[in-house]
Simulated assay, not measured.
Amino acid sequence: MTPPQTRQEPVTVRVFTQRFSSTPRGARLARLLAQHQLDRWGHPHDGELSATVAQIVAELAANAVTHGRVPGRDFQLTLSYTPGRLLVVDVSDTRTERRPALLAPASLSDSGRGLLLVDALASRWEIVDRVPVGKTVRAELDL
């Protein structure tokens, strides 16, 4: 006797990938295009998910431009969206020797809080090696 067949809905993963110049302008454009892509996927600009992703992309892109910049090399943003399940934000750069760390900034410092924000906003985050060279900072949001 064969077991009864259950119909499962297909899992659709939507992916957006774009390279940007390693400049403040490129970081700003990455944030804006991430929000635009989320809007195309049904999450409007004024929604909570859009605001959260915009903040995460802004912080990770700023880090890629400031600390991961290699002259003549771009950084890359990838959004992977599984509706109702997961949104993954990957920001990749080509610098391997400078890996971000979650540290408490000096109390009067104007910088150093980006990864603390990512840690607070994301369900989880990690740093993974990028092939062929570099690193990717990945932030995941459970939906």
Rank of each mutant, 00 (worst) to 15 (best):
P3N: 09
T6G: 11
P10D: 05
P10A: 09
V11W: 09
V11M: 14
R19E: 12
S21H: 03
T23W: 04
A27G: 05
A27N: 00
R31E: 14
R31S: 12
L33W: 08
H36R: 13
H36M: 09
H36A: 14
Q37L: 06
Q37A: 10
Q37E: 11
D39A: 13
G42Q: 09
P44K: 07
G47C: 14
E48K: 12
A51M: 11
T52R: 13
A54D: 04
A62C: 15
N63E: 03
R69E: 11
G72D: 01
R73H: 10
Q76Y: 03
L77A: 00
L79I: 00
Y81N: 08
R85L: 08
L86G: 05
L87P: 13
S92P: 03
S92L: 05
T94E: 15
R95M: 08
R95S: 10
R99V: 07
P100E: 03
A106H: 10
S107F: 13
L108M: 14
S109D: 08
D110P: 14
R113A: 13
G114Q: 07
V118W: 06
D119M: 00
A120R: 15
A120S: 12
A120Y: 15
A122V: 13
S123Q: 08
S123G: 08
R124I: 07
R124P: 05
R138P: 04
A139P: 00
L141T: 02
